[in-house]
Simulated assay, not measured.
Amino acid sequence: MTSAAASRIKVGIVGGTGYTGVELLRLLSQHPYVDLTAITSRKEDGMPVSAMFPNLRGRVNISFQTPEKAALEQCDVVFFATPHGVAMNQAQHLLEHKVRIIDLAADFRLQDTQVFERWYKMPHACPSVLADSVYGLVELNRQKIADAQVIGNPGCYPTTVLLGLAPLLENGRKLVDTSNIIADCKSGVSGAGRKAEVSTLFSEASDNFKAYGVAGHRHHPEISEQLQRIAGAPVGLVFVPHLVPMIRGMFSTIYARILPEARDTDFQALFEQRYANEEFVDVMPAGSLPETRSVRASNHLRIAVHRPEGDDQLVILVAQDNLVKGASGQAVQNMNLMFGFPESAGLTHVAVLP
């Protein structure tokens, strides 16, 4: 582990041609303690990164390589911005070379291998590595992340739901009815990844709004597993994701019924106190309405707490950029902790408006 924040580390990226990959490149290219040394792609072997992503011209001067050429074993940390199933097949080899791993897919998110196999339709290749991995939601697992060798970077939807509910469930609190919590979540099209798919074609996604995964979504068991850890007991959750006609951004509206004995709770104060020292979680003033554009291209997540008409229904609004705090920014935040860097290093970008 790097002992001084001034030390530089060598960083590799496996599968850097997707949206999370280019976000990692954007963030890491401006990181004060990082040397980008390798990025892999079989199809684009030999192509300069800036030829695929012109926004990185003059910032990233390396080329894509096949995994065999990339010398990932010489890196201090390797990010996997790959489809599910890739990281777990390469993890053991890299760990033997003392390389730390941050996986942006689902290989190390779910500790229950049977649940993983049910939702991802593949056997888990390294359950022993999985058992020692850490779920990389910094605001919940900061100390464990700092000591981890393998990080399962959280999914984008789970980040909003877990941070939106954690203050209500931590420390054995009995504030809301945990048998029936509803998370109504919306994401921009980039959440589907950089691939050819009819549902994300411009003429299909533009000027349109729809729910999907209502019968079951892969992020549901991830959210449920983590909520149970937070609450210390199973939590009943209805999770419905939606696709909205924008490129990036995520907005979750969470509904929870306040228990009779908790009616006098100051929920605004509860959230403000919980996240008072969290640089990337902004609890907005009472009555606020966060917008996705207020976090666009930044690592910030904004929360507003509402209690309509002073009734027993609590409404929590959460906005984030699905590619930054929901993916690559969170991964860099994890890396900073793992190597003793300031947690905000490389992540201080202000949101883009308009």
Score class of each variant (00 low, 15 high):
Val283Trp: 09
Glu278Met: 04
Arg173Glu: 05
Tyr255Ser: 04
Ala125Thr: 02
Val238His: 09
Thr20Tyr: 09
Val240Leu: 14
Pro54Asp: 06
Ser298Lys: 03
Gln228Lys: 13
Tyr19Cys: 02
Gly310Val: 14
Gly346Cys: 04
Arg302Leu: 13
Val150Glu: 06
Ala5Val: 13
Asp177Ile: 10
Glu197Arg: 11
Ile13Pro: 00
Leu270Ile: 10
Val305Asn: 04
Arg142Ser: 08
Met122His: 02
Leu162His: 01
Ala297Gln: 13
Gln226His: 15
Ala196Lys: 04
Pro48Ser: 04
Val281Ser: 03
Ser203Tyr: 15
Pro48Phe: 05
Arg302Cys: 12
Leu323Cys: 07
Ser288Gln: 09
Asp311Phe: 09
Phe339Arg: 00
Ser252Asn: 09
Pro167Val: 14
His217Gly: 00
Val150Ala: 04
Gly18Trp: 04
Leu94Met: 11
Lys121Gln: 13
Pro241Gln: 02
Ser206Asp: 10
Glu96Ala: 13
Ala205Pro: 00
Pro127Gly: 03
Leu353Met: 11
Arg296Cys: 12
Ala211Trp: 11
Ser128Tyr: 03
His31Ser: 05
Leu301Thr: 15
Ala345Met: 01
Tyr212Val: 07
Val86Glu: 06
Phe267Gly: 05
Ser298His: 03
Gly249Phe: 10
Gly310Met: 07
Ser288Ile: 14
Met335Trp: 01
Met52Trp: 11
Lys98Pro: 01
Asp76Lys: 05
Thr253Ala: 08
His306Arg: 11
Val324Asn: 09
Gln65Cys: 03
Val129Ile: 15
Leu56Pro: 03
Arg218Phe: 14
Ile316Arg: 03
Arg57Leu: 08
Asp45Arg: 15
Val150Gln: 02
Asn180His: 15
Pro123Cys: 04
His217Glu: 14
Asp132Ala: 14
Gly249Glu: 06
Thr82Glu: 00
Val78Asp: 01
Tyr19Ala: 05
His306Glu: 10
His84Gln: 13
His97Leu: 08
Glu261Gln: 15
Arg8Pro: 00
Cys185Phe: 13
Leu72Ala: 08
Val161Asn: 01
